Amino acid sequence: MRYVAIPTPVVRALQAGGLDANGQLPERKLAEGGGNTCRHCLKLIPEGAGMLVLAHRPFPAPQPYAEVGPIFLCAEPCEAGGGEDLPAMLAAPDYIVRGYGVDDRIVYGTGGVVATAAIPARAAELLADDRVDYVHVRSARNNCFQCRVER
Rank of each mutant, 00 (worst) to 15 (best):
L42M: 11
K43T: 03
G48I: 04
A49R: 15
G50T: 05
G50Q: 03
M51V: 07
L52R: 10
V53R: 15
L54W: 08
L54P: 08
A55K: 11
H56S: 00
H56Y: 13
R57P: 01
R57L: 00
R57Q: 05
F59N: 01
P60A: 06
A61G: 04
P62I: 01
P62E: 00
P64H: 11
P64Q: 11
P64L: 03
A66T: 01
E67K: 13
E67A: 11
V68I: 08
V68T: 08
V68P: 04
G69F: 01
I71S: 07
I71G: 09
I71N: 12
I71K: 12
I71V: 15
F72E: 08
L73K: 11
L73S: 11
A75L: 07
E76F: 10
P77L: 09
C78A: 12
E79L: 11
E79Y: 14
A80D: 06
G81L: 09
G81I: 07
G82K: 03
G82R: 06
G82L: 04
E84T: 15
E84N: 12
E84Q: 14
D85Q: 14
D85V: 13
L86F: 14
P87T: 08
A88P: 03
M89V: 12
M89L: 10
L90W: 08
L90P: 06
L90V: 00
A91Q: 09
A92R: 13
P93K: 14
D94R: 15
D94F: 15
D94W: 14
D94E: 15
Y95C: 02
Y95E: 02
I96W: 13
I96F: 11
I96G: 03
V97Y: 11
V97C: 02
V97M: 03
R98S: 07
R98A: 07
R98I: 10
G99W: 03
G99E: 01
G99N: 05
V102W: 07
D104F: 01
V107T: 08
G109S: 02
G109K: 06
G109E: 05
G111F: 00
G112L: 07
V113D: 12
V113I: 15
V114L: 05
V114P: 04
A115E: 10
A115D: 08
T116F: 10
A117S: 12
A118G: 15
P120E: 04
P120A: 09
P120W: 14
A121T: 10
A123H: 09
A123Q: 01
A123R: 05
A124W: 14
A124Y: 12
L127V: 05
D129Y: 11
D129L: 08
D129H: 12
D129G: 06
D130W: 10
V132W: 03
V132G: 00
D133M: 01
Y134P: 06
V135E: 03
V135T: 03
H136E: 04
H136S: 00
V137C: 02
V137S: 01
V137T: 05
V137A: 00
R138I: 06
R138V: 05
S139T: 11
S139R: 09
S139G: 14
S139I: 05
R141H: 14
R141I: 13
N142K: 14
N142A: 11
N142F: 13
F145E: 01
C147H: 07
C147L: 07
C147P: 06
R148T: 10
V149S: 05
V149H: 06
V149L: 03
R151H: 12
R151M: 06
